[in-house]
Amino acid sequence: MSYSNKVIISMVINNENYDDLTVETRQHLGDFLRDLGFKGTHLGCEQGACGACNVLVDGESVRSCLMLAVQANGKNITTVEGLETSEMEIVKDCFVKNNAMQCGFCSSGMLMTTYEIIKSKRKYSREEIREMISGNYCRCTGYQAIVDAVEDSLNKINVGM
């Protein structure tokens, strides 16, 4: 049986429709998004280890290097450029205030994981925050400042209080 190595797909990215785009079946979502200009999605390892490439698919964080663009056909994608809910604005502020980003390479992925933390609407100990962000490498901050930022965000958003 033979199938095509190219397909035509459509999806919603940051609330805008992207229709009838031709994509190679082997291309992963991370490369696809970057080719479209969403350069906030960073690619580090392309093996699932670093978490820099995390984006939201239908509101859940996923590794964009471990999902094919064709698998995102018909789905709703949010990249860091589109993380604009009032809660995420608070989170971004907290990241800046707590110096939770230096080079910024890990930050979009960290924000996606923080989105999951906020979404679960419960309290987190610092230890639990560390567990949640354990899938995101940061080579600059030493993590302390990131845990501070997530904790600060949770306090400001009053999650689970």
Binding site: M1, H28, G48, C65, M67, L68, Q71
Partner: peptide, 23 residues
């Protein structure tokens, strides 16, 4: 889910003809 398969493909450890998505 592709979470084991796609890393091995990205590393070119296998060479399938077609991926059958069962999701």
């Amino acid at each position: 889910g592709g979470q084991s398969l796609l890393p091995t493909l990205n590393m070119r450890l296998s060479n399938p003809s077609v991926l059958i998505d069962i999701s």
